[in-house]
Design a protein around this nucleic acid. Sequence first.
DNA 1: CACCAGGCAAGTA
DNA 2: TACTTGCATGGT
Length: 230
Amino acid sequence: MRDTPGGGCNPMISKRRELIRRVFDQLRHTFGPQHWWPAETSFEVIIGAILTQNTAWKNVEQSIKILRERGLLDFEALHAVPAPDLALLIRSSGYFNQKARKLKAFCDHVQDHWQGDLQRFLSQEMDTLRQELLTIHGIGPETADSIVLYAAEQPTFVVDVYTHRIFSRHWWIDETVTYDTLRDFFMDALEPDVAFFKEYHALLVRTGHLYCRRKPLCGGCPLEGWKEDS
DNA sequence: CACCAGGCAAGTA
DNA sequence: TACTTGCATGGT
């Protein structure tokens, strides 16, 4: 007997896996494919991941547009821009001084440790890459996982405020769980699958936008009325 | 007007 | 370790 990611011999994990899959199937059936991450290159994913921290994606789009027009969705080009200049270009994303510094910190790290070879940096073994990302200023657990999954295309599960909200409100998880515990909740129960993890996170964000944004607003959610044992 | 958004770092006790 | 606070624009 051993615990497989699929939960083969552990009844708790096996039950959790079933719930997680049922939630996915329901959301996928309701909303269809989400086509995430909306970006053309891995570097653009990384820029977006930093800019969207605690910020509506709509605000980030304007910043990305400006960076694109200026040819700055390119590692060497962006690395050459001073943080104060960059801050002015990403104003619409909010926290622009901090985020400019974060973008610079990322570029500096890849330049200093990987000679600017972004693809080689992203090609590291998953846990090593994730740990290294977490040492970079401005990259916390969610941003690190977003980069690993959507830029490096390696199978980590991205947890965000909606993941926490949706699952805790249904009493499927404790409200006080930490990021890593909630990430393990999914990853211990599921086979690693990049396409599946990408779609799942996107669907949770979509569901959160529609039904778990403001405090009361939850009517009409496709998961409404679900019980733990139903 | 208040509240929130696809977080994180730094400060305090 | 466990809370708190600053960061900041733009939409509802």
